[in-house]
């Protein structure tokens, strides 16, 4: 019994670490592009996609569901882009309008149209439940236990994200630093933008049942923003962000066990506290340095 429990704990930590890694890698680019709000927007507006796809597939982990919801996320990005560039609505207003509208649609679907047929509830979508991931195990040949399906899905997403970032590194770098220059080289920067938004959607969609739509934003933004304070090189920033994300997951997990509170809540709290600690250190150090100049 104890071994099983430890196994479960291990998979909770591993799965959450993969969420943290996926989110942090993309978060670095979102933070550098000053598009943190976009993560928020996408994570909420995939809700109607999840509901519709779930309605048709009846399975929370079917590839159809993941694909459907990911497409909703990309459409959100397209809509926001259209509102701000073509209809000349302020960018932050475009984001706010689009994602609350889509999220509200999702709510109506869950509570009204599809209720009865769709067995997902709003709490689960919003907050996820990592404690339950072990209920859905993947076992091959009746005895080879590969881990919970959430873990395996998350792992596939990690592979996809890392491949895209590895091969698309130059494109994403141009997109974040100097989009006009990319255009002047004849590159299709829109395509890069939407590939990135597609990855962000994918990561939020695969994470929603684990950490929920609200806290995935914390995983996207906080480690990346912390890493930005710690280094001014791009690749180290990505590694720092992943490391900080995983550290927050591990400390958060044991904190949650100790205090008997929500795992993901504790993980994001630790992440936030790490951020503020770093901010404090950076501010104090700057003060001390300028103090030394004055005396």
């Amino acid at each position: 019994m104890k071994i099983i429990n430890e196994m479960n704990d291990l998979f909770i930590i591993l799965t959450a670490s993969l969420v943290a890694i996926n989110a942090s890698v993309l978060g670095v680019f979102l933070v550098l592009r000053k598009m943190s709000m976009m993560g928020d927007a996408i994570s909420h507006s995939v809700l109607p996609g999840i509901v519709v796809a779930y309605y048709f597939s009846g399975d929370r982990t079917s590839p159809l569901l993941l694909l459907g919801a990911t497409i909703t996320g990309v459409l959100t990005a397209v809509l926001i882009d259209w509102l701000s560039s073509k209809a000349k609505i302020q960018n932050d207003a475009s984001i706010g309008i689009t994602y609350t509208l889509l999220f509200a649609l999702g709510m109506i679907m869950i509570s009204g149209w599809f209720s009865g047929n769709v067995d997902i509830d709003l709490d689960c979508v919003l907050y996820g439940d990592i404690a339950l991931i072990n209920l859905d195990k993947v076992i091959v040949d009746e005895n080879l236990y590969l881990g919970p399906s959430a873990f395996l899905i998350e792992l596939s997403a990690t592979v996809i994200v890392l491949l895209f970032v590895f091969f698309g590194f130059r494109g994403f770098k141009l997109l974040a630093f100097n989009e006009d220059f990319g255009l002047s080289l004849g590159m299709n920067m829109n395509r890069w933008h939407f590939v990135m938004m597609g990855l962000v959607s994918l990561v939020t969609v695969v994470s929603f049942e684990v950490v929920g739509a609200v806290l995935v934003v914390g995983f996207l933004i906080i480690p990346a923003a912390t890493a930005h304070l710690l280094t001014n090189k791009l690749i180290p920033m990505i590694f720092w962000a992943c490391g900080l994300g995983v550290i927050a997951v591990i400390i958060g997990f044991y904190l949650a066990v100790w205090l008997n509170v929500s795992y993901t809540g504790a993980m994001v709290t630790v992440s936030g506290l790490l951020f503020f600690t770093v901010v404090l250190v950076v501010v104090l150090r700057k003060k001390r340095l300028s103090g030394e100049y004055l005396h």
């Binding site: 550098l32 630093f177 001014n232 090189k233 791009l234 180290p236």
Partner: peptide, 14 residues
């Protein structure tokens, strides 16, 4: 093409 200097964020980690 050399864009206007102010058109990018020089805090970018590079």
């Amino acid at each position: 093409y050399v864009p206007q200097r102010e058109s990018v964020d020089w805090d970018f980690p590079a």
